[in-house]
Amino acid sequence: MDALKSAGRALIRSPSLAKQSWGGGGRHRKLPENWTDTRETLLEGMLFSLKYLGMTLVEQPKGEELSAAAIKRIVATAKASGKKLQKVTLKVSPRGIILTDNLTNQLIENVSIYRISYCTADKMHDKVFAYIAQSQHNQSLECHAFLCTKRKMAQAVTLTVAQAFKVAFEFWQVSKEEKEKRDKASQEGGDVLGARQDCTPPLKSLVATGNLLDLEETAKAPLSTVSANTTNMDEVPRPQALSGSSVVWELDDGLDEAFSRLAQSRTNPQVLDTGLTAQDMHYAQCLSPVDWDKPDSSGTEQDDLFSF
């Protein structure tokens, strides 16, 4: 819950932080000083300027060897085509990944977070970031790969997607708890209302004896509580940590079903599988986004697919 609360507080303090972009060759504004600060901008989305290598189908939802083989196929196909790589912007948030063309600003792909089953910074092609997700059109699994400016960037994108998945799962947990509370309150309110109706004398007997209905007592009954809980029953509950912020979080049926399955089948359902080692994760978390744009010590960066 700490990640969720800190993310909400950060967004309320400075929503404009989320509009910064990394990996864009110096076009961005001043960047936060450390990885923790940038992680807090996830709610509205972190932007990464990358190059799209392509996509291939895979048979399993996750796995280092599986993704490595898929990336190898994608890279080989991209090299064989001889075409310049498409420059894209990857927007990562707890909602998922939005992929747009840098030149036309046209939407290429919009992947809900619950469809993503794996992401990684490839070991062999260490400047490549990739994720595996279920197609929104059918049940097939797709591996999408992107060329980053350097290994640090690939690791940073991988960690960002993993963190977005974690925050999304926490949102789901909060929403589920809130819905259970509202359902319980609604049920209790309905029981109270039913009890009051059972003990209320029939209207005919009131008229016969000349008694008047006590409207004041009726007004004191917990009807307002019942209506408050039943009027918006169809509205999706939102985490309290975000009250007053500009973010509107809505959970669709697909996300609810997917996270429910994860909660039942996995020990740590909030953790998205990645190909990063503990050492890689520690190294990337210690980086400032400013470091992502620094040239690798191995030599001059080449803006070309064939540089790796």
Rank of each mutant, 00 (worst) to 15 (best):
R182D: 14
S265A: 13
Q20T: 15
I116R: 00
P289C: 09
F306C: 13
L53P: 00
E250Y: 04
Q134H: 14
F48D: 01
T41Q: 11
R151M: 04
D183Q: 03
Q240I: 11
T267N: 03
G210S: 11
S260Y: 13
L215D: 08
A69L: 09
F48I: 02
T120C: 02
S93R: 10
D37G: 12
L85G: 00
V226P: 08
E250S: 12
D253W: 02
Y114W: 05
G96L: 01
K204G: 14
S288M: 08
P61G: 05
W172P: 06
V92P: 01
L262W: 02
A70V: 02
K150N: 02
T41M: 12
K179A: 14
D304G: 13
S81A: 04
L43Y: 14
V58C: 04
K179Q: 13
Q136C: 15
E216Y: 07
C286K: 03
A7C: 13
A219Q: 11
Q139F: 05
T225P: 14
D126I: 00
E235N: 05
L203C: 04
D214S: 06
A219C: 09
S21G: 05
H28Y: 12
K62Q: 10
I71F: 00
K79P: 00
D183T: 11
A228Q: 02
D126N: 03
R13P: 07
K87Q: 15
L50V: 05
Y118I: 04
E178H: 15
D293F: 01
R29I: 14
C148K: 00
R73P: 01
K30W: 15
L272Y: 02
I71E: 00
D234A: 07
L50H: 03
T36F: 11
S245Q: 09
T274R: 02
W292E: 13
N211R: 12
S260H: 10
L206S: 11
L66D: 06
Q302E: 08
K51R: 12
E64A: 12
D253R: 13
A258D: 01
S93Q: 14
E178G: 14
S93K: 15
P237W: 07
T300V: 04
A10N: 04
T274K: 01
D273G: 04
R151D: 00
A10R: 06
W172L: 02
R95H: 04
I98P: 00
G96F: 02
A278K: 09
L251Y: 09
S297G: 12
I71C: 04
Q86T: 14
D291H: 11
K123E: 15
E44N: 11
D296F: 03
G194E: 09
F129H: 14
V226I: 12
A221C: 05
K30D: 10
G45H: 06
L287I: 15
V157K: 00
D198S: 03
P15V: 01
D293L: 08
R29V: 07
A121G: 15
G8K: 15
N102C: 07
V247K: 07
T104I: 10
Q20Y: 15
A185I: 13
D252Y: 03
Q136M: 13
V236E: 07
T225L: 05
R238T: 06
A168Q: 03
L43W: 15
V290P: 04
L242Y: 07
S112L: 04
A168H: 03
S297C: 08
T120S: 05
K150G: 12
V157H: 00
K176M: 10
L206D: 04
G299W: 05
V248M: 09
L212C: 10
W35L: 10
Q279A: 07
D293I: 06
R27W: 10
L11T: 09
T209I: 12
L90R: 00
D256C: 06
A284T: 11
K84R: 06
F169C: 03
L99Y: 12
Q155E: 14
D303N: 07
Y52K: 13
K123I: 14
G45W: 01
A208K: 06
T230S: 11
T104Y: 07
T209V: 10
E180S: 15
A154L: 01
E301Q: 07
D214E: 15
Q302D: 02
P201A: 14
D293H: 10
E188F: 03
I108A: 05
V58D: 01
L159H: 13
F169H: 02
L141F: 08
E178Y: 08
D183N: 11
V128I: 01
C143H: 07
K51P: 00
V207I: 12
Y283S: 11
L90Q: 00
P222F: 06
D252E: 05
A18E: 10
L90N: 00
R115W: 13
A284M: 15
V290F: 13
G210Y: 06
R39E: 15
V111H: 08
E257A: 01
C286N: 10
R115C: 04
T77F: 15
W292A: 03
R261Y: 05
S175R: 13
Q240S: 12
D37M: 13
H282T: 10
